[in-house]
Design a protein around this nucleic acid. Structure first.
Lengths: 221, 221
DNA sequence: TTATTGTTTGACTAAATTATCAAACATTCT
DNA sequence: AGAATGTTTGATAATTTAGTCAAACAATAA
């Protein structure tokens, strides 16, 4: 009678949540780390803090659980390409794209890991999802590729293959998330203050890609 | 009597070789694609074209087979950092490093895939190997990092965090190998003539990283 | 309270995967 | 040829993993 609504309190750090969600989130992490075949239902159950048979109660089979989380991860993968704002100089668009892309992967690293694991394992599900997405919504890169082409036409940047460029930018934004332990081992800042490292990385990637390394004197020589 | 030495002919494409080698090479590929836990001994046996019990004859257990190939892949991973030549301008050193690194990964894509899979799975073996290697031989990046520092001192390039730069270069050289199916799907050249794509990529990565995107006029503005 | 419904648990079965082994086979040496 | 050694095979055992099920439990509504 006294307390009417202690209902949907998301308590402090990251606990509780209903069972189905906890299973789903745990599966997300384990499938991303280990791939479909490498993942063990027991590990997912442990990470969710539940008994294994509950997995089957909520998601009939391993395959169905996998497909459910794969759908989520794919949509997060696609969303990372949703470039904010448009128009204006490529320098602004590119900076915004890099910031947003790194933020996306920082927030959903498992989407990136899953995408890499799927590619390496040679499974078909990612390819199918991507084909479908491209057929209905067009290539996720399209918007950025067109922005690069416009910048070439306007003379803002030198001629460059837009697809190669996009691949370079995405590589620079994603790769360190899928090799985190090694990066931490090789880079003190990444080990001690990862968030600071991520912010530094945003700046670095933009500067190197947009301005390059060569100093003015050398570039003019 | 007539033909004395038909012995170690590596026949045409890629066949034969003694059983142990075929098992080892097949294990290399399967472990790289699927990770330690995702790999199935049956798949390795199939890919090697032998019966499964032979795996146990040559390499007692799955774990021992895994450790054997892991050692090989780690040494290939390290070797990719062996930058050729030295001294002179960073532009030359960097170009050589990029060419050599991409060639290495092109030749041993499974070393890169294994390294990524290990990182994502959070296994300890890679970290241990790396610690040991750093302790005995120093950081694999050291040589390139020092070259970058010299180039900054000499004024060839603008000031930049050498570790961030190395990470960017390595990302740009490796990432497309661990996401090949997707890259092929998004880039016609990668799908139709991969070798040509790889050569184009070498050029692109160097040019963007060293010269950047901004055209002279914009850079001078 | 007592049905009713939905959730959780432990014990269990089924299937897949790893590992062993003795017998068959091949190769080399004498 | 015959012995000795190393290799391959098929059958089978052991272990791990996925999936099932009925009973216990909890929450809700009549």
């Amino acid at each position: 009678m006294t307390n009417q609504l202690p209902d949907t309190h998301s308590p402090a750090g990251a606990e509780a949540a209903d069972t189905e969600t906890r299973i789903f989130d745990a599966a997300l992490r384990v499938f991303a780390r280990k791939g479909r075949d490498g993942a063990r239902l027991q590990e997912i159950a442990d990470e969710a803090g539940i008994h294994r048979p509950l997995l089957h109660y909520y998601f009939r089979t391993k395959q169905q659980l996998y497909e459910a989380v794969a759908e989520r991860m794919f949509s997060q993968f696609l969303a990372s390409f949703d470039t904010p704002a448009e128009g204006g100089r490529l320098s602004d668009t590119l900076r915004a794209f890099i910031d947003h892309y790194i933020d996306s992967v920082h927030e959903h690293p498992h989407a990136a890991m899953w995408m890499v694991a799927e590619n390496m394992a040679g499974n078909t599900i990612l390819g199918e999802m991507l084909s479908r997405a491209v057929a209905t919504e067009g290539s996720p890169q399209r918007s950025m590729i067109e922005a690069v082409e416009r910048a070439i036409d306007s003379g803002e940047i030198r001629p460059v293959d837009p697809r190669q460029l996009l691949l370079t930018v995405v590589s620079a934004c994603v790769f360190f998330f899928v090799t985190l332990p090694t990066v931490r081992m090789m880079n003190p800042l990444a080990a001690e203050d990862f968030d600071a490292f991520v912010e530094a990385r945003k700046k670095h990637v933009f500067e190197v890609v947009y301005c390059g390394l060569a100093s003015r004197e050398v570039a003019d020589a």
